[in-house]
Design a protein around this nucleic acid. Sequence first.
DNA 1: GTGATTGTACTATTGCAATAGTACAATCAA
DNA 2: TTGATTGTACTATTGCAATAGTACAATCAC
Lengths: 128, 128
Amino acid sequence: MSLSFNINTAHPTPLYHQLERAIRFAIATGKLSIGDQLPTVRQLAVDLRINANTVAKVYAELEREGVVQTRRGVGTFVKARHFEAARAKDRDRELRELEDRFLAEASHLGFSAVEAVDHLKVRLKKEK
Amino acid sequence: MSLSFNINTAHPTPLYHQLERAIRFAIATGKLSIGDQLPTVRQLAVDLRINANTVAKVYAELEREGVVQTRRGVGTFVKARHFEAARAKDRDRELRELEDRFLAEASHLGFSAVEAVDHLKVRLKKEK
DNA sequence: GTGATTGTACTATTGCAATAGTACAATCAA
DNA sequence: TTGATTGTACTATTGCAATAGTACAATCAC
């Protein structure tokens, strides 16, 4: 696995914000551990097919907030920190956004929120 | 309650997109029912402290997609779903795909399917 | 019919996201 | 020391989001 970071250039949310969230998540969910090196600015830009400046902007912001530590000429690394507190909150916030998107799209198909959730519940029971 | 729609001008996501999702969400969760009138373009702009053109853009887009119906000089209303005509099988298949994606992404965040659905259920109850 | 209300349609402007390109600085291996 | 790698720092450009302002069109109450 090569840390895809799942960003979407078609989505109206700014790329820098999508990427920042994706990286925070990778850390929060343990895909990236303390001390791990992130892809280089240039490499990640190539992988995600976005501009290197956008990646650099994200790394700089995460550095500013103490999430990562960059060593010029060496690379960018996940900084040792107390994520445990922020972890649950971040995951919850992300889950909520997933839920909102799911409900909005289900509504677009003509399903109410209750209908969609019930449908999901039934599926889980059947497939258990 | 006056349909606050919870948008955030500080958030990098475009306002038009936040508002569109908020309205879809209000419909999906039953805060807005079929036939209900939405705030007028100008009124909502005042309430949310955003530009009327931004609101108009969202209403126009929702109109284009059949979510609301606007009657010039009268107002904008939640439209009776035109999806009902769509074949139940297609809708069901689409819903399943949405569900699969939702569960996959939730699991990616470290939530089990049951946890995600339970979380959703609780949210719907609280926000009703 | 009149006037108020509501949605629609423009123009113009500002600011930021994203891109492209280039150059420079720090680190490390050989 | 040299060269490759990595992050940093610029300039310039394009496109869209958002705003401000104005004018017009359709509907309804009176």
